[in-house]
Nucleic acid binder design. Structure first.
Lengths: 207, 207
DNA sequence: AGTTATTTCAGACCATTGTCCCAGTGGTCA
DNA sequence: TGACCACTGGGACAATGGTCTGAAATAACT
């Protein structure tokens, strides 16, 4: 599956030139004349892709677009490509998670390298997020009561304590516990705790 | 406790000027004329401190020193301060974890800001590493056999399976298990699994 | 009005773990 | 040799968790 590169630049001739170069290297390309244009047809996180972004563009600037995307929860990696790079902007962009910060003119090698890294990172983070997402989906199937029981189980409470804490009997907790194990598709307490840990549900009192 | 700033620069007059400015702001300062000099009397990770590092210095360059320190396992945050910053170097330094990348001349405000961020990050990461270190210390008290049992317990195996897998009886595993819980200072399986997860001991088969 | 989901609870029974007590073997080290 | 530790195992018992079958009340939605 070829990567999709979203090129954002206000210079039409530059866009077509880059588009040609990237397509020759086997990438799919979508071009945008402004940050707003990209926001309007927002790239889908679920497909492998990255953004090739100019810093100085009319309207929303490159870094401003980066901030907006982060706020929106997007994880599409960004490669900045600009004519003039000042150090503070570069530092901020990279610290905000940009994959690279290139200056025009850029060699094809540099460009392809950066895009490949961006796509690889996107791929890795997608896999990771998918796993977490599937776990969260399982947790979402729990009823409120089951969720309470789940929380207390993974904190090491025993059924008796949980029953007392929730104002019910040990027998009932046993039933809930069975449901929790069933819905979370685990067969051991260890797996359940492991899931809770990876979802950050145990950080509250372990801090 | 005042932060200790390690200033590495080959320009003696610059070192004394910076030292004066930093001491006026309440920091302790140690100066080094070269990267090698800093490596020779290596800053102690255990004290709050950061490195103010010039990029172009005779011998080992700033980024080269950064690499060496990372290889050595140091986590002292680095603030680069250089006369001339080119974009690739800036990008590499930040991606390698540098706290900031400033250009001379630098305003006191910028400088202090960067140092404060570096010290704050050092402090946070120190807390985190200390917690992990204390957990690892507990694990280290386990005998080889106990460690094996520990691994299998947190993977959800039951005593019977563990006994079979290790070629011994369930009764013996019970004894080991008791020792493990004792030494790890936990009273529930949940806590044990949580510790294993945080130490990354469960990633092998959960990938 | 009927259906469904949620939460509640029971008895009986087995499996698993935890906790006392105890003890032998083999290795290391002063 | 004597002390210590790791590893091994046993008996007896209590505590806890898991499974099976069954049931009832409440709320929400169709």
């Amino acid at each position: 599956m070829p990567g999709l590169v979203h090129v954002v630049d206000d210079d039409a001739s530059f866009r077509t030139a880059i588009e040609r170069r990237l397509k020759l290297s086997g990438y799919d390309v979508a071009t945008y004349a402004s940050a707003q244009e990209l926001l309007d047809r927002l790239p889908d996180d679920s497909k492998p892709g990255c953004i090739l972004l100019d810093v100085r563009i009319p309207g929303l600037s490159g870094p401003e677009l980066q901030s907006r995307l982060i706020e929106l929860g997007s994880t599409v990696p960004i490669v900045f490509l600009t004519g003039h790079a000042d150090t503070p902007t570069t530092v901020r962009a990279i610290k905000a998670g940009a994959e690279d910060f290139l200056t025009k003119p850029v060699s094809s090698e540099q460009l392809i390298d950066a895009i490949e890294r961006a796509l690889a990172r996107q791929e890795a983070s997608r896999h990771h997020r998918r796993k977490l997402e599937s776990l969260r989906a399982l947790v979402a199937t729990l009823t409120p009561r089951e969720h309470q029981v789940f929380d207390l189980i993974v904190r090491g409470k025993i059924n008796k304590q949980i029953g007392h804490e929730l104002g019910t009997t040990e027998r009932t907790i046993k039933a809930h516990r069975h449901q929790v194990m069933e819905k979370m598709q685990v067969r051991s307490l260890a797996e359940l705790v492991s899931i809770a840990e990876r979802l950050g549900l145990l950080d509250a009192d372990k801090a």
